[in-house]
Amino acid sequence: MTSGMTRGLKGGLILAVALLVAIVLSLMIGQIRLSAFDLWNGLLTGKGPGALTLRVLRGPGIATAIGAGAALGASGAIFQILLRNPLAAPDIMGFTSGAGLAVVCGVLAGTTLPMPLLSAAGGLAAACAVAIMAIKRDGTQVPITLILVGLGIGFLTTAAHSFIVTRLPPEQAAEAQRWLTGSLAARDWGHAGQVFGCGAVLAVILAIQVRALGLLELGDDLATGLGLKSNRARLKLAGTGVLLAATGVAVAGPIPFIALMAGPLGMRITGATQPGGRILSAAVTGAIITVLADLAARSIVPGLQLPAGVMTGIFGAPYLLWLLSREMDAGDI
């Protein structure tokens, strides 16, 4: 137990340092390079290029990336624990692209509804569709069917995305394409406030449910024996997970593979086994991945801002392949 504690502590420390390094690097590197000294100066005095970068140029985007990555990572961990399958992430199961579709449709239709609301509606609709369609004739749900049906919903929303993009005039089409790939360019403090505000509320709601998640992990019979209404608890947890993912999508677009990667990577580093620890480490790992993906996307080709989702696609897909081969060796799928 003690060794597990120290490992957890060490892992937590590693994650915290990694996040800090990612943030500092992301602040320093860009079209104009800054030294750590410039940043420090800007932070202390509030003047000079460092302060401008922190307050206007890179600060808001990085803050948004942290919030969105944490929300997506936590959401992924919830579903991975709930369905006991590392492939069960909201981006694989089509929830994030459903949320993204709803946002684009809402914006194009000219609604004044706030983006998180649109995103939540889309995510919940996609999740409900997947959950209902994955029910087999005998009334049971198997994780692998959920994942496959979710892929199908993802195909459908992707087709809808490209349908919409073709209908737009070129300028708007390029913008929509960027957003739907998942991008953190030109985000302001409003975005950051939004994702942290919604995220904080959901984090509290999630914290209340962590005990139930732990009980569900023991198996339905045991959980029910311990006084848990397991179906209702599962539904609430899934709802919270979808809303967390939607919170991330509302500010960063349906950025792929972060929710899938964050949980297992975080668990590997911290060695966390309890749901609370797993979700927390997934959230921090998600933030790190998103900050680094955004950094890579805007600095890998000089003078060009790629959407961050391109980077998570390039690095996340090999991870999915690796995961697949490992799961196959273990005989799980």
Binding site: L87, I147, L151, P256, F257, G313, I314, G316, A317, P318, L320, L321, L324, I333
Partner: peptide, 9 residues
């Protein structure tokens, strides 16, 4: 899944 991952990349 392998096909989806490869396509995505």
């Amino acid at each position: 899944l392998a096909g989806v991952a490869l396509s995505a990349m």
